[in-house]
Design a protein around this nucleic acid. Structure first.
Lengths: 204, 204
DNA sequence: TGTACATCAGTGAACGCGCGTTCACTGATGTAC
DNA sequence: TGTACATCAGTGAACGCGCGTTCACTGATGTAC
């Protein structure tokens, strides 16, 4: 983001980008307004023309993150080409890929203390993203006999929790160093076992 | 922790307790040395007689947390009375119970930015706790035919990731409000499906 | 048991710092005529 | 096309604040004789 003249031209996005970078590097509490302004090449007061305050800048990152996240999951889902199992597996891979490629967004979304439900705009876009997983779960189990079919929201929460747990524990520096398996393999294997347990994949 | 005279008598533990409470209430970045000292009824300089600095106080909480965590998992494990499945399920319940009853510890352990591997003392006690899950996984799969037996470390990482994901996403305020299932039920059902997928539980 | 002294565990004041935010301002831009 | 003016998006200085940490100090405690 090179600055041209007195006016920046794209300061809002430049601040969001700086925030993402800072959060990646120093964590959500290491990020400061002053630093973000500095990285955008602007005085410390300038951000307040675009954001109400510190919290609202982080929320903007989370909002953008959930939007992008939803798009990616949606896209991955369609890659399954109608196969429920393939859709779900693609969605899982997309989940990890997103967390790996956009750690700043991911942290703002899930680890920054931003209240997802307190902000309706964020809640809407977060629900859309999670809806993709639920839809995949729904298709997955629709052919199971009713007595042995768990609620699809439960299935999607299992998948989500497993994915999130792997991201938090094994896909970053700590304490992932201990893990002998790449996160992608870990998730794929985990989903595979789970799906066999659901009887939507053959015994082996 | 009531203060008696000039000397506190138990300041170290009082500071740890205050830290736990503060982290629970305001998150790891909301905790301050000054506040902790105040809650312990002591001047702001006093903590430095017992801890090198802020970081080291949080590390003490994490250390204590992992120790307690390990004890609880160990105890739960023995409750299985030799049944591998029962041991694993009890361990899972203990995991959630710990996170619910000791959120301050849990946050210090997993969300405070404390580097588990950078501190050998913490690493040792963390590995002991995780070792319980791995041991349970080991027993669980030892009777499976070798070709279809996944590594026990992988199984334990699946269980751990699922448990951690459920804690982070559904066992606290955010965004758990959306979840129609209690975390305990969610975890138990998830582990059940997973174990059927592993062929260590009958098909249904 | 008493005393002298070393050590331990506190105090209180002070420091430097950087942060979030506000405010009056000013330069740049867009628009109506 | 030119001009006047409203509005927008910056600046720079200042603020109050609270934090982590240090320092010289002092009160309390433990111990050797």
């Amino acid at each position: 983001m090179v600055r041209r003249g007195y006016h920046h031209g794209n300061l809002k996005q430049a601040l969001i980008d700086a925030t993402i970078k800072l959060i990646e590097q120093k964590g959500p509490s290491g990020f400061t307004m002053a630093e973000a302004a500095k990285q955008a090449g602007v005085s410390a007061a300038a951000p307040y023309r675009h954001f109400k305050g510190r919290e609202s800048l982080i929320e903007a990152v989370a909002l953008q993150g959930f939007t992008l996240f939803g798009d990616l999951l949606e896209f991955a889902y369609t890659k399954g080409n109608g196969s429920a199992v393939a859709s779900l597996e693609a969605t899982g891979r997309a989940y990890l890929a997103f967390a790996r490629k956009n750690p700043g967004h991911y942290i703002a979304m899930f680890e920054s203390g931003v209240s997802i439900n307190a902000n309706p705009e964020i809640a809407a876009v977060a629900n859309r993203a999670l809806g993709v997983i639920t839809r995949a779960a729904d298709e997955l189990i629709e052919n199971l006999p009713a007595e042995k079919r768990p609620p699809s929201t439960m299935v999607s929460q299992h998948i989500w929790a497993l994915s999130h747990g792997i991201v938090e524990l094994f896909a970053r520096g700590e304490p992932g160093a201990m893990s002998p398996f790449p996160p992608e393999e870990l998730l794929e294997a985990g989903i595979g076992v789970y799906l066999r347990g659901l009887n939507v994949l053959p015994k082996d």
